[in-house]
């Protein structure tokens, strides 16, 4: 190992169950840590509050996509049937909006759905296949039955020894440094 190029980017500790994880998150929040994350195999209700996170802003992304989808679809139907190639069908007005509702709705839903997935990934910084937490061997249990908290070294309160001590005082086990080759 080439020690010069290894940098500590965070600390991770394991907790035994969702309740412990949530209590630890509350203590980290109360003692001023801000750049930490609680890893669990399933979403835990109340964790956003325990970590001091605001609610997700994904709704705005999807709302915008829905507006673009519906206006785009309605606009296409209006433009093709009244401007680009006006054609009287069954004696109906050129812009008979009732008949354009189903497609307007479908395209709105389609774009919202795409925006929900892509927006969720973008807000989560995904896809990101490489992350320091994956360097830990124990971490692969996080998708099975293990619970972890990781604190990033960028957190203003981060200090290698003190943070480890703090983790141990709130019930964390298996504390380990997360390191990355620079």
């Amino acid at each position: 190992m080439n020690n010069n190029s290894i940098k500590t980017v965070g600390i991770m500790a394991q907790f035994s169950n969702p309740g412990e994880l949530m209590k630890a998150a509350e203590k980290l929040r109360d003692s001023g840590y801000s750049k930490f994350d609680c890893h669990s195999p399933f979403p835990i209700h109340g964790m956003d509050k325990a970590m001091g996170l605001s609610s997700s802003s994904l709704g705005w992304v999807v709302g915008l996509a829905a507006i673009i989808g519906t206006t785009g679809a309605l606009g296409l139907q209006w433009w093709t049937s009244t401007i680009d190639y006006p054609l009287v069908i069954s004696g109906k007005p050129l812009f008979s909006f009732q008949a354009y509702v189903p497609i307007t709705f479908a395209v709105g839903v389609l774009l919202s759905g795409v925006a929900a997935l892509i927006g969720m990934l973008a807000l989560n910084g995904l896809p990101r296949w490489n992350h320091p937490v994956f360097n830990s061997d124990k971490f692969e249990k996080v998708t099975d039955d293990a619970f972890f908290i990781s604190i990033e070294a960028e957190d203003p309160k981060f200090h290698t020894d003190e943070t480890i001590q703090f983790f141990e005082s709130i019930g964390g086990t298996n504390c380990e440094l997360l390191q990355e080759n620079q």
Partner: peptide, 11 residues
């Protein structure tokens, strides 16, 4: 790259 972090679960 799913990490199961609550910051991800939230979104």
């Amino acid at each position: 790259g799913w990490r199961g972090g609550n910051r991800q679960w939230r979104h």
